[in-house]
Simulated scan of single mutants.
Amino acid sequence: MNAFTKKPGRRDAQKDATRARILETARDHFERHGFEAASVRAIAADAGVAAGTVLLHFEDKRALLHAALFDDLAATAAEAARDEAPGTLEERLHRLASAFFGYYARRPALSKTLLRESLFADPPWQARFAEQVGAAHGRVVALFDAARARGEVAEGADAALFGVAFFSFYYFALIAWVQGAHPAPVALVDRLVAQHLCGLRPADHPGRSR
């Protein structure tokens, strides 16, 4: 191997590093200037690349926005999945919701723009976001199954249906937060989950609704 031969994988690593730098710069621009005011040219300049390089990685400014949300949610979900601390179903769901709302709170302006745009994402982002939701739903189902094995919920309770209910609560709180209608979305999710679980407890559980 001569001095001018690149090691295997080096080109891919450089490409990934450039992509990550562009995305981080885009996040900063979207947060400070808003989606409409941010420009690909300015993002490229601050990332230290040509505008054409940005467009090689991302089709347009909206694709940059979707990629930023997708990557951030993927990282947040991966971190949440590593949570193996003990706790009741309600406690673990609280930590799960807190992980995502914590991300939104760190970049509030960007998150609100990202969330509005992602609700109407075009392919392929539509399918990618759906996959993320499906994986998160699977996580909730697993937590519910574990709680059922511990006797926290009734044997006949439907885990998949509970997962759907949890996400309905989560999205309701998320929309309320985006609209500025509720300042404490995690607390709202907690209350909705607690009320829903009252009807799913075993007959002898102290939290069973009468």
Results as ranks from 00 to 15, higher is better:
Arg62Asp: 14
Arg62Pro: 09
Ala63Val: 00
Leu65Thr: 02
His66Leu: 09
His66Ile: 00
Ala67Phe: 03
Ala67Tyr: 03
Ala68Trp: 06
Leu69Gly: 00
Phe70Trp: 14
Asp71Val: 06
Asp71Gly: 06
Asp72Glu: 03
Leu73Arg: 10
Leu73Phe: 10
Ala74Thr: 15
Ala75Trp: 07
Ala75Lys: 03
Ala75Tyr: 04
Thr76Cys: 09
Ala78Ile: 07
Ala78Gly: 10
Ala78Ser: 13
Ala78Asn: 06
Glu79Thr: 12
Glu79Ala: 15
Ala80Asn: 05
Ala80Thr: 07
Ala80Arg: 07
Ala81Glu: 15
Ala81His: 02
Ala85Ile: 08
Pro86His: 11
Gly87Glu: 11
Leu89Asn: 01
Glu90Pro: 01
Glu91Tyr: 10
Arg92Ile: 10
Arg92Ser: 10
Leu93Glu: 05
His94Gln: 06
Arg95Phe: 09
Arg95Leu: 11
Arg95Ala: 02
Leu96Lys: 08
Leu96Asp: 10
Ala97Ser: 07
Ser98Ile: 06
Ser98Lys: 12
Ser98Asn: 01
Ala99Cys: 07
Phe100Asp: 10
Tyr103Trp: 15
Tyr103Lys: 13
Tyr103Ser: 15
Tyr103Phe: 14
Tyr103Cys: 13
Tyr104Pro: 00
Tyr104Ser: 09
Ala105Ile: 05
Pro108Phe: 06
Leu110Asn: 12
Ser111Gly: 02
Lys112Glu: 03
Thr113Ala: 14
Leu114Glu: 13
Leu115Gln: 14
Leu115Val: 08
Arg116Pro: 00
Arg116Asn: 08
Glu117Trp: 05
Glu117Leu: 08
Ser118Cys: 08
Ser118Phe: 10
Ser118Leu: 10
Leu119Asp: 03
Phe120Tyr: 14
Phe120Cys: 10
Phe120Thr: 14
Phe120Trp: 09
Pro123Thr: 00
Pro123Trp: 13
Pro123Arg: 15
